Deep mutational scan, measured.
Amino acid sequence: AVSDRLIGRKGVVMEAISPQNSALVKVDGETWRATSGTVLDVGEEVSVKAIEGVKLVVEKLE
């Protein structure tokens, strides 16, 4: 799938994300809905860990 190429890519949080709420991230110039197990604020850099349906699963870039 096209989205599989995004695993391992870096992105930027466009809307705050919490474990209860998905929000938008920008990866390679494209906007995607994403979820995370932690709270992520706007502007934080993230890494794509997986794809669940049409959502990216991201975590904060260390």
Rank of each mutant, 00 (worst) to 15 (best):
K10D: 04
E45S: 09
T31I: 15
V12I: 13
P19M: 10
V25S: 02
S22C: 15
D28P: 00
K60W: 04
T35K: 07
L61Q: 06
G37C: 14
A1R: 12
V46K: 01
G53I: 02
P19C: 13
G43I: 01
A16K: 13
K49L: 13
E45N: 08
A16E: 06
V48P: 02
K55A: 11
E59A: 09
R9K: 13
G53V: 03
L6W: 03
E62L: 12
K55S: 13
D4E: 12
V48F: 00
V54H: 14
G37L: 13
E59M: 04
K26G: 05
G11E: 03
K26W: 14
V48A: 01
G11R: 00
A1K: 12
K26A: 09
V39A: 13
L6F: 05
G8P: 02
M14I: 14
D28Y: 01
G8A: 03
M14A: 06
S36T: 06
D28I: 02
D28H: 04
E59G: 06
L40E: 02
A16N: 08
S47R: 15
D28V: 01
T35F: 06
S36A: 10
D4K: 11
T38E: 13
V25D: 03
V27T: 00
L61T: 09
G8H: 04
S18G: 14
S22R: 06
W32V: 10
Q20L: 11
K60T: 07
S3A: 12
E59Y: 00
V58G: 01
K10T: 12
V13F: 01
V39Q: 13
R9L: 11
V58F: 00
G8Q: 02
E30T: 05
K60P: 10
S18L: 08
A34D: 08
K26I: 13
L40R: 00
E15T: 08
L61A: 08
S22P: 10
D28W: 02
L6N: 03
A16F: 14
L6P: 03
V12H: 06
E62D: 12
P19W: 08
I7G: 01
Q20T: 13
W32T: 09
S18A: 08
K26S: 11
G43C: 13
V46G: 01
K60V: 07
S47H: 12
L56D: 03
S36W: 03
S18P: 08
L40S: 02
A16R: 13
V48M: 01
I17H: 13
R9F: 05
V58R: 00
E44H: 06
S36Y: 05
K26T: 09
L61V: 12
I7K: 04
A50N: 06
L61S: 08
G43K: 02
K55W: 15
V42E: 06
S3H: 12
Q20V: 09
L6R: 04
V57Y: 07
K26E: 11
S22W: 08
K10W: 08
S47D: 04
D4S: 12
K55R: 13
D41Y: 14
E45P: 07
E15H: 06
L6H: 03
W32A: 09
I17E: 15
L6G: 02
A50W: 06
V39R: 11
S3C: 11
L40A: 03
R33N: 13
L56S: 07
L6Q: 03
V57M: 04
S22D: 15
